[in-house]
Amino acid sequence: MKAIVADDSRLIRGIIEKTAASIGFEAVQAGNGREALSLLEASGGEINLVLLDWNMPLVSGIDVIRKMRGDDRFKKIPVLMISTESEEDRIQEAIRAGAQGYLTKPFTADQLTDAIHQVLEKH
């Protein structure tokens, strides 16, 4: 299974990728939302999960979700938003936009693993 890990922090991408790999995902990294969308375009439908930061340069995570949900090729791919944005209205905005789950930073590997499993179960 393949996942996109999109975060503007290389360190956070590495942590998320390592955790995703521990449960069987091959991850590709994107440093911003535009890169994440490009990876989706180039994936040929092989992406099974997108793990997105909200606050990224060029294209934000919330805009990536909106673009995914507006595109028949990508609208069914599960999305987990991982962000420092912890206000309830932001969480609800991400869910309304089409995220299946939301995890606030900082997080533990166990919390991330649980959140990924919950998102996949909803899918």
Results as ranks from 00 to 15, higher is better:
M1G: 13
A3W: 07
A3M: 09
I4V: 14
V5M: 11
V5L: 08
D8Y: 04
R10S: 12
R10W: 06
L11M: 07
L11R: 00
L11S: 04
I12K: 01
R13I: 07
G14A: 11
I15K: 04
I15V: 14
K18I: 07
I23E: 05
G24L: 01
A27H: 08
V28S: 14
Q29H: 10
A30F: 06
A30V: 09
N32K: 05
N32T: 02
N32R: 01
N32M: 02
E35L: 09
S38N: 15
S38K: 14
S38Y: 11
L39P: 10
G45L: 10
G45W: 05
I47R: 02
L49W: 00
L49T: 00
V50S: 04
V50T: 03
L51P: 03
L51F: 01
L51I: 02
L52F: 10
I62D: 03
I62L: 13
I65S: 07
R66F: 07
K67R: 14
M68W: 05
R69M: 03
R69F: 00
R69I: 02
D71K: 06
K75E: 12
V79P: 03
L80P: 01
M81P: 11
I82S: 03
S83G: 08
S86P: 01
S86D: 14
E87M: 11
E88W: 04
E88C: 00
D89I: 03
Q92G: 02
R96K: 15
G98S: 13
G98T: 09
A99M: 05
Q100E: 14
G101H: 05
L103G: 07
K105L: 06
P106H: 10
F107V: 06
A109N: 10
D110M: 11
L112H: 10
T113P: 02
D114M: 08
A115W: 04
V119C: 08
L120R: 01
E121Q: 15
E121K: 12
K122G: 01
